[in-house]
């Protein structure tokens, strides 16, 4: 008999998290926490630090949405998801949004019924090989053994690339980055393939990073971005514009340092609209007027987030490349705030 009480108590604990309301925004507000799905750990994008606090590029998006909706960057419950569990977690309502380097594809949009609200990182699948292998191009890899980190679109891109170049390979699917790295370093595979950003992050932690090269081919388009469920467009709007606010802030030169000052009012009407000193944009989204200002003050603009987490001054050392602002020849472009 005594055993059953654990169950009931747990049920109380488990179910207490639930709340029935019409929209996701109301759910989040009622709960006081945003449930945000992230990876189980990818340096630079989402990983807990030594104190257990989640940090990273994707984490910043979660925190931005939490700031916009709840006004507190710590009001986020980070839910680690794997490649298998992420879509069910989102579909079943366990998480409110997914910010987990997930590639935007048609089938995920139409078949799995998710809405990608934008792109926060333009990635592509690349290859890493030891320098002494003497490979200059991925097209030289005929007959090579390839370690693949499973769980994204990697396997499919790889198969397409080798098939279209009419060369053969031996795939070794590996579940975690740590194990893939071990196999690669021990020579159990010739090349390691995953998203180029992940490769750079992995190589940065090697004992001798200079002994390894990233091959020039990028074999796929991987627009990674946050996504939400179909059927709640209001919530989708909030996530979309939280991301866009960070992007626009960089474009307009608003940083975490000068946001407070600028919010007092400037000559640029778009800055004023973004920071809430003019117009009613926040109200239209169902948020406070200073929602975007809060995001920028706590998380910084897109450029700051990039530099702090994965930029050239971090261990990962990614250059902006495609992820520069459109004004600098990149693809990062936000629709206007008006």
């Amino acid at each position: 008999m005594k055993k059953s009480v654990i169950f009931s108590a747990l049920t109380i604990a488990g179910l207490s998290a639930s709340a029935a309301a019409a929209g996701t925004l109301d759910d989040v507000k009622a709960r006081g926490k945003l449930n945000c799905g992230v990876t189980t750990g990818l340096v630079g994008f989402a990983a807990p630090n030594a104190d257990g606090r989640w940090e990273g590029f994707d984490v910043a998006v979660c925190r931005a949405v939490a700031v916009a909706t709840l006004g507190d960057e710590n009001a986020v419950e980070f839910v680690p998801t794997t490649g298998k569990t992420r879509f069910t977690a989102l579909a079943s309502g366990e998480i409110d949004m997914l910010a987990r380097n997930t590639t935007w594809t048609l089938s995920r949009d139409a078949d799995l019924k998710f809405t990608f609200v934008g792109v926060n990182y333009y990635d592509g699948q690349g290859f890493m090989a030891p320098k002494d292998l003497g490979v200059a191009s991925a097209k030289d890899l005929d007959g090579a053994t390839v370690c693949i980190q499973t769980g994204t679109t990697t396997e499919l891109n790889l198969a397409d690339f080798f098939r279209s170049n009419n060369i053969s390979y031996e795939p070794v699917p590996i579940e975690t980055n740590a194990e893939a790295q071990q196999q690669y370093l021990a020579g159990a595979c010739d090349v390691f393939t995953t998203d180029a950003s992940g490769l750079a992050a992995t190589r940065a932690t090697f004992e001798n990073p200079a002994d390894h090269v990233l091959l020039p081919e990028i074999v796929s388009k991987e627009p990674l971005g946050p996504l939400v469920r179909h059927g709640d467009s209001e919530w989708g709007d909030i996530v979309r514009w939280s991301l866009n606010a960070m992007i626009t802030a960089e474009e307009l030169g608003i940083t975490s340092a000068n946001a407070a000052e600028m919010s007092a009012g400037t000559n640029n009407p778009e800055i004023n609209r973004l920071l809430g000193s003019e117009g009613t944009l926040g109200e239209m989204l169902g948020l406070s007027a200073d929602w975007a200002k809060n995001i920028i003050m706590t998380q910084g603009n897109y450029g700051e987030v990039f530099e702090n987490n994965i930029g050239e001054n971090t261990a990962i050392g990614l250059s902006r490349g495609l992820n520069s602002q459109w004004t600098d020849g990149g693809l990062i472009y936000s629709p206007p705030f008006r």
Binding site: G83, V172, P173, E175
Partner: peptide
């Protein structure tokens, strides 16, 4: 078996196929 990269049924049907199609 997927722990060592061996493609058993959990790795194909319950792994990559599930990931790619989302048909959990």
């Amino acid at each position: 078996a997927i722990l060592v990269g061996y493609a058993d049924v959990t790795a194909t049907l319950g792994g990559i196929t599930l990931n790619q199609t989302g048909r959990a």
